[in-house]
Nucleic acid binder design. Structure first.
Lengths: 138, 138
DNA sequence: CTCTTTGCAAACGATTTGCAAAAAT
DNA sequence: ATTTTTGCAAATCGTTTGCAAAGAG
């Protein structure tokens, strides 16, 4: 109970009420710096009872509050990853074969963003994902 | 009839049998260098009768044959664009407000691909999409 | 003639929704 | 006390599938 207060605080700071599921979800996502699917989350979150709909609602709330990032690697479902200042802006590479996901800890969008700014775009954001065969699958 | 032979040829070159839907679909996608949704395609393809399932099957076949590119901008549905050597490798920017999609005619992935190659990845590909407010929506 | 493609209707799977009850602050 | 969150069940929506009939080469 005692060290859950950290997570209660985080939720409150983000204007989210603290509930059993939200605490466990935040704890889980904080422990893994890895984009998890809803299914993976459900398999891990076995200590409490909750409904699937509630999980999706919490994930949406967390995303809106920028507590987590929603990641779409074109798999047909979404992944969720804690939004952490330490690994701030990064990208991912997923292995074509084993589906392992790794972080690419830097970005290279400046040239395109400069081009887009000149073209008249504002408020520019981007998505950039890589795919390839990892060294163990080769 | 006569100038459809061009499209029949293209289909055959790609080992695809020529059918009324495939011809019209190829003609439509060739006329627009723009990533269209299945719904948009259906609204345009009114001269012939066909089933939705057939359309999706044709889109999948075309993609496998690399006649078209399937594009996922995270909208919850896919878009399809003719695969054309003239605009070969490019990316897209979509306006946050009006959803207009424009082509970014160049790429900047070399630095990351070099990094990934060093890390042991082979067969690297990527996805890169930009989002922002366009000049008319500003 | 053989293999591929089609139409139809039903299935899919991730996510969302309506609603009334329960919980958080 | 008020607002938010939950559980349940049903719905949504883009896309896919099984199957037997039709069409292409």
């Amino acid at each position: 109970m005692v060290h859950l207060e950290k997570y209660i605080d985080i939720l409150h700071t983000h204007h989210l009420k603290s509930t059993p599921l939200r605490l466990e979800l935040l704890k889980l996502l904080s422990s893994k710096h890895h984009p998890m699917t809803a299914e993976e989350i459900q398999k891990k979150l076995t200590t409490i009872a909750y409904d699937q709909a509630t999980l999706f609602r919490s994930l949406k709330k967390f995303t809106e509050a920028k507590l987590i990032n929603t990641i779409d690697l074109g798999e047909g479902f979404l992944r969720y990853e804690i939004h952490c200042k330490v690994h701030s802006h990064h990208h991912h590479i997923m292995c074509n074969r084993c589906k392992k996901i790794e972080v690419i800890p830097f970005c290279i969008s400046q040239e395109i963003e400069k081009y887009l700014t000149k073209t008249g775009y504002t408020n520019i954001s981007h998505r950039m994902d890589f795919f390839g065969q990892c060294s163990t699958c080769k």
